[in-house]
Design a protein around this nucleic acid. Structure first.
Length: 760
RNA sequence: GCCCAGAUGGCGGAACUGGUAUACGCGUUCGACUUAAAAUCGAAUGGGGAAACUCGUGCGGGUUCGAUUCCCGCUCUGGGCACCA
């Protein structure tokens, strides 16, 4: 008797898929398409972890499900390869990041193939390959040409450990998202993408997206639109007027002082000989404070600048303070303080003994001009790192930036000896002296000129802001994406991931809108449906980590003899897709037993019954599994299959029963299903259910008295249409009679629930 | 502090649109097979009770013939944001 040997059959089918390439697709104009992708992985040296497997398997289940329905399904794969881990490894060992990356990609590819994913391997992309980042640079230049990539000198988050600036989104609790070191503020000239240009559209289109509410809310909060007004305050003694932003212009009668941020540009002009020293010292201290320090100590601090402003409503003379509770990057960096209406202002007023006036409210538009501001800032994209996409810019002798012409792309990352950034604040690219010099046409002088290249590289998020579109024509050397192919495949129908709720998912929307405006994309939202799945924790419920020694390696699970099908099916069965789950080795065994039973039904139990015997459960199971997969209830889809198999064990199985089983299980356990289908001599086309076979001839009607279950009646299906007959049957039941001795007030029959409730 | 999500057996979790709470899996117990064990197969399994029955979905109220589901008020847990004027 043949035993279920997953290792053997998985090897067999993986070899077949490698040779026949059944998942390689091309545009078929008359066939409906489906474009499904996961958030592509960063290929670490550790290889796939169980979270990757959950991510990729969700995509695979959907891919196979729609493929079995004969849709034209694009399911590509790629690697997000720029970034610090490879670079830090390079610094430590002297190995080129290019080489480390290649090794890791090879390993990831091998492991993904071992899991039997239905990937179109001809479309693999790698963000650090020159043929890819050439087009990342092209994207940058489009933004640059439209003025949406620009330079600005400002205070920025700086990670002293990684020697680079960070975007707002990359600072978590005042610490660098990569190394965990506390970040500082540093004044630098940096490149930005003007995402705020699209703030309104990014906000307003959120509601129309088929995305989890959690993510939608996070994005709305992140953009943080607030409407209010800007109000000018004249300053006594000739210093420039101060414009404040407020959401409560109606409270101006109660504004008893002004506060400006430490980084406020006109700060020094507000000081006098007596206050200058203290004010500048306060500023220096505030700027130096780490984010952690700011958060830990929320006690209000500040100093008087020495100047007074005139409240335009009351004409009163009010003092101007500098305090770090006012943020330079929001609004105008200056506020009117209304201690009677604002808790923070009150705190400050109490501490510095400033007047608190419960003044009357006035018309909002009397003294200000309406203004909308956003919490979201422009996206800082410069990184002082070696292992990133070089920014295709060169500077002339005046320090003015010029685009590297598109026909000179890609700007290849130069080879250097030492990948470490030096302490000039420039990346290791600055060490490639020959590379730094480039001849570029200067449109101002009308001449070719030797210029100096930009040494910053792009934030890795730039590379992942357009990769979904690259998948449609990954080897196109003429375009970032082919205009015809993008029309057929994009936008992405289903996108699956577990991270990047604001950053990546906001950036990709921003670029989509930008390129739609340029006419390169025929849609304005890149992702129709987003599946945001939970993490998988260790059996002890804690996060898996190398240091805790509680990491489950998916390849170990496979090689222990369970095989890829068990691993895949288990991870779909582990719980609701959106929730975190804890790994349970014993449940893995349960899933393995289930697959064994599927095998046994086909290969060990040879007696077959008639196709009619199980027609009801068969149709029910088809319906349940189909609708569950559409709703992404993968755990209950697997449960339904388990129930079906348990039933087939009890009743025996017909040939048709087994064919249906194999087809339904294929998205989860494709190797086993292929083996079963081969034996049963059937194709894998997704089955349809027939509504008329969803109920048996005899059905059970539940009888309640006062909402409590008192009897069950078995009646002919047709009798459900006869309410009076059912109710009299129910009343005749002996147990029901016992509870209705004192008379019946009312009866309720619910046909759909097959339920009678008698109110006694 | 603000916003979001959640709380169901010993455990992970099911439950359509307000209609039989605990599907499925794990664990446990018993039985079959075996010299034995493992594997496999079968049965039982929310608490109390001999049973009839009764109590049960975080807590307290409410609406309803009927509430895990809807409403009000709490508690706790997870996540996000956090001096955004």
């Amino acid at each position: 008797m043949e035993r279920y040997d997953p290792i053997k059959i998985e090897e067999k089918w993986q070899k077949i898929w490698e040779e026949t390439k059944p998942y390689q697709v091309t545009e078929k104009p008359n066939t409906p398409k489906m474009f499904i992708a996961e958030m592509f992985p960063y290929p670490s040296g550790a290889g796939l972890h169980v979270g990757h497997v959950r991510n990729f398997t969700i995509v695979d289940v959907l891919t196979r499900f729609y493929e079995q329905q004969r849709l034209n399904v694009l399911r590509p794969f790629g690697y997000d390869t720029f970034g610090l881990p490879a670079e830090n490894y390079a610094i430590k060992t002297g190995t080129a990041p290019q080489d480390v990356t290649k090794t890791n990609i090879d390993n990831f590819r091998k492991q993904a193939k071992r899991l039997g994913y239905a990937i179109d391997w001809s479309r693999e992309i790698n963000t650090s390959s020159p043929e890819y980042y050439k087009w990342t640079q092209w994207c940058f230049l489009q933004l640059f040409k439209k003025g949406l990539a620009y330079q600005k000198e400002s205070y920025q988050w700086w990670c002293p450990e990684d020697q680079t600036v960070l975007a707002n989104e990359q600072v978590e609790n005042g610490k660098c998202w990569r190394c965990g070191h506390e970040v500082e503020k540093k004044k630098m000239k940096q490149w930005f993408f003007k995402i705020t240009e699209y703030a309104d559209e990014l906000l307003e289109e959120i509601d129309s997206l088929d995305w989890p509410d959690k993510i939608k809310t996070m994005q709305k909060n992140w953009i943080g639109r607030s409407t209010g007004a800007e109000i000018d305050f004249e300053v006594e003694g000739g210093a420039p007027k101060i414009t404040v932003f407020t959401t409560r212009p109606d409270t101006i009668m109660g504004a008893t002082f002004l506060v400006v941020a430490p980084e406020y540009s006109g700060l020094e002009a507000l000081t006098n000989d007596d206050t200058r020293e203290t004010v500048l010292a306060y500023k220096a201290a505030a700027v130096k404070k780490s984010e952690i320090e700011r958060q830990e100590n929320k006690e209000k601090t500040g100093v008087f600048t020495g100047s007074y402003a005139i409240n335009p409503a009351t004409k009163e003379k009010i003092p101007i303070y500098v305090a770090d509770y006012v943020l330079a990057g929001y609004g105008t960096g200056a506020i009117m303080a209304v201690p009677a209406y604002d808790d923070r202002d009150r705190e400050f007023a109490e501490k510095f003994d400033l007047p608190i006036i419960e003044a009357e409210l006035i018309d909002r538009d009397l003294y200000g001009t309406p203004k909308t501001t956003y919490r979201m800032r422009d996206w800082l994209i410069s990184r002082q790192r070696y292992w990133g996409c070089p920014i295709p810019i060169a500077y002339d002798s005046e320090g003015e930036p010029h685009a590297i012409p598109e026909d000179q792309l890609p700007v290849i990352i130069p080879e250097v000896e030492d990948y470490k950034p030096d302490h000039t604040g420039r990346s290791a690219l600055a060490k490639a002296k020959d590379w730094l010099k480039v001849e570029v046409f200067n449109e101002k002088t009308g001449q070719m000129e030797e210029m100096t290249r930009e040494t910053d590289t792009l934030d890795g998020y730039a590379c992942s802001s357009w990769y979904l579109w690259r998948y449609v024509s990954p080897h196109d050397s003429e375009h970032a994406w082919d205009p015809e192919a993008i029309k057929y495949w994009a936008p992405t129908d289903i996108y699956v991931g577990a991270d990047h709720a604001v950053a990546h998912l906001l950036y990709i929307r921003f670029w989509c809108k930008f390129f739609a405006d340029l006419g390169y994309l025929p849609f304005r939202e890149p992702v129709k449906k987003l599946i945001y799945h939970g993490y998988i924790n260790a059996p002890d419920g804690k996060k898996m980590s190398k240091s805790k020694g509680n990491v489950i390696d998916p390849l170990d699970v496979i090689n222990d003899g369970y095989g890829a099908d068990t691993l895949r099916t288990y991870e779909m069965f582990i719980g609701p897709v959106e929730l975190d789950a804890a790994w349970d080795p014993r449940s893995v065994g349960g899933v393995y037993r289930f697959l064994n039973r599927c095998w046994a039904l086909v290969f060990e139990k040879k007696e077959r019954i008639s196709d009619e015997s199980n027609v009801v459960i068969r149709n029910k199971t088809i319906k349940k599994v189909t609708t569950d997969i559409v709703k992404n209830n993968f755990n209950t889809a697997v449960s339904a299959l388990m129930e079906y198999v348990n039933e087939l064990f009890k009743t025996g199985a017909s040939n048709e029963d087994l064919v249906i089983l194999a087809k339904l299980i294929k998205p989860f356990a494709p190797h086993l299903a292929s083996e079963m289908l081969e034996r049963l001599n059937a194709d894998d086309e997704w089955p349809k259910w027939d509504e008329k076979h969803l109920a048996t001839d005899e059905v059970e009607v539940v009888v309640q008295v006062n909402g409590k279950l008192r009897a069950r009646l078995n009646v002919e299906k047709e009798l459900l249409d006869d309410e009076d007959a059912i109710i009299s049957l129910a009343k005749e039941d002996n147990n029901v009679k016992k509870f209705t001795e004192n008379g019946i007030k009312k009866t309720i029959f619910v046909k759909k629930a097959k339920l009678v409730n008698i109110v006694a």
